[in-house]
């Protein structure tokens, strides 16, 4: 996954952009995400239905993958079945 690559959810409207990546399959709502959205016949897995929030950054446990949610959806993000967590940045005062 190259930085800048966009991935779409197969089961909801979620879209992410890769900020930092390695070759792992990102899931949304329990289903793999892909450039074109992938197999849309599946339903959202209820274990991954907390939703994604636009503008939030999502990271895996070791910080090797970082995604920016560019479109919100009902599915939540995971890699290998492990939920990604949001990364909170300390807000900076607006300088320009």
């Amino acid at each position: 996954m190259k930085p800048g690559t966009k991935l779409k959810s197969a089961v909801c409207s979620t879209e992410v952009m890769v900020i930092k990546g390695k070759d792992l399959i990102v899931q949304c709502g329990g289903q793999p995400m892909a450039d074109q959205g992938g197999d849309t016949s599946a339903a959202i897995d209820s274990n991954f239905a907390e939703g994604s929030k636009v503008g939030k950054r999502y990271v895996n446990a070791d910080g090797s993958v970082e995604l920016l949610c560019v479109k919100a959806g009902e599915g939540s993000l995971a890699i290998d079945g492990k939920a990604l967590t949001t990364k909170d940045a300390k807000p900076l005062p607006s300088s320009d």
Binding site: P3, G4, I19, G55, R57, L68, P91, L92
Partner: peptide
């Protein structure tokens, strides 16, 4: 694009 986007994503919270 990577410089400018890096700056914005690193310093501004979306819809804050």
């Amino acid at each position: 694009h990577s410089n400018l986007l890096g700056y914005i994503l690193g310093t501004v919270e979306f819809m804050s």
